[in-house]
């Protein structure tokens, strides 16, 4: 099989500006992109730098952008790529050190910032903590995260908002919040509630798309938003107010009434800031009707909301069980 690799190179010890270099290779059909890059490094051009180790999707070293999207090079089978040329670039949202090697220090610092370790309460039991089997099984989905950085690379929020804590650290935070043994969930949630927290996610799905281990960081972010709302921790937050306004209005009328949505989701001071837009909309006939239309079968919509609410499970926490005195 012939492949054409187009690799973005950068050498801080030479001119320092990025440039493209192409490599034409003949490789066996089963080759991954990592196999091909190793072949380049070993046989064609020893100056090519990249990180790699396990070759089996478990160490998280070899994430890079392949045809514009982050993935593990060892998980990218060349025979599955249908473009004539495979474009290979370092991960995004991180400064380049050399070639495909990026500076991960900011990535780790953000991870450390969330206190990424179990914080249990009370005395350590003599044996194991006794917890429901499915609560541990549920964590597998996040423990699967190999910290490869692919989600951070392609995160749209991070590209414009450098203080955004980012999908990897959020997934880790979720892992502790959902762990029955961890007692710091309220502090953790409050930390996620501030600037750079869960409300800064733009819901773009990139992290879900590119994650090579199906960790679905954005789903975890959304779950934490919901916990913040349910636990009454987010009432003063615009994002939370918007979410509440949206569900209240759609749940009641079956459709979104933009005027009410605005009034319910911002403060009076902020509302004044919308006056000019409001006036212009009115003079151009674009203002939504002041009395919202209720869609004919709004009751059905309401029932959907009720049903989703009742199926959502409260997270199981040992320290709360202990306080409430109920047996595990």
């Amino acid at each position: 099989m012939d492949v054409q690799l187009k690799v973005r190179r950068q050498n801080p010890e030479a001119e320092g500006t990025p440039y493209w270099k192409e490599y034409a290779l003949e490789v066996p059909d089963h080759f991954t992109l990592l196999d091909a890059l190793i072949q380049v490094r070993e046989e064609v051009d020893e100056t090519l730098s990249l990180r790699c180790s396990c070759r089996s999707h478990i160490c998280g070293s070899c994430s890079m952008r392949v045809n514009g999207h982050a993935n593990l090079a060892c998980k990218t089978k060349l025979s599955d790529i249908h473009s004539d040329t495979v474009t290979v670039e370092p991960m995004g949202n991180m400064p380049v050190i050399k070639d495909l090697v990026v500076d991960l220090e900011p990535f780790w610092k953000k991870l450390y910032s969330i206190d990424p370790y179990l914080q249990p309460a009370g005395e350590v039991p003599e044996r194991e903590y006794v917890v429901p089997a499915d609560s541990m099984l549920h964590l597998d989905g996040v423990v699967n995260c190999i910290m490869c950085g692919a989600c951070v690379s392609d995160c749209e929020s991070l590209s414009v908002n450098p203080i955004f804590i980012g999908p990897t650290a959020f997934a880790k935070e979720y892992r502790f919040i959902m762990d029955p043994r961890d007692a710091a969930d309220t502090q953790r949630l409050m930390q996620m509630n501030g600037p750079g927290g869960v409300w800064d996610c733009t819901h773009c799905f990139q992290c879900v798309e590119v994650c090579p281990k199906d960790v679905a960081p954005m789903d975890r972010i959304m779950a934490m938003r919901k916990m913040l709302v349910d636990d009454g921790l987010a009432e003063k937050h615009n994002g939370a107010r918007r979410q509440k306004a949206f569900t209240d209005i759609v749940g009641r009328y079956g459709r979104l009434d933009e005027t009410r949505y605005l009034m319910k989701s911002v403060t009076m001071v902020e509302l004044a800031g919308y006056a000019k837009v409001g006036l212009r909309s009115m003079t151009h006939g674009k203002l939504p009707p002041l009395r919202p239309h209720r869609i004919p079968d709004a009751a059905r919509i309401r029932r959907i909301f009720e049903r989703t609410r009742s199926t959502q499970r409260r997270r199981f926490k040992l320290h709360q069980q202990a306080q409430e005195g109920s047996p595990v």
Partner: peptide, 19 residues
């Protein structure tokens, strides 16, 4: 047990004990 206390989410049996 130390690893479990530190946070490893070891698989459990149906009674919630280590499997």
């Amino acid at each position: 047990l130390e690893l479990e206390h530190w946070g490893v989410n070891f698989s459990r049996d149906e009674t919630g004990h280590l499997g």
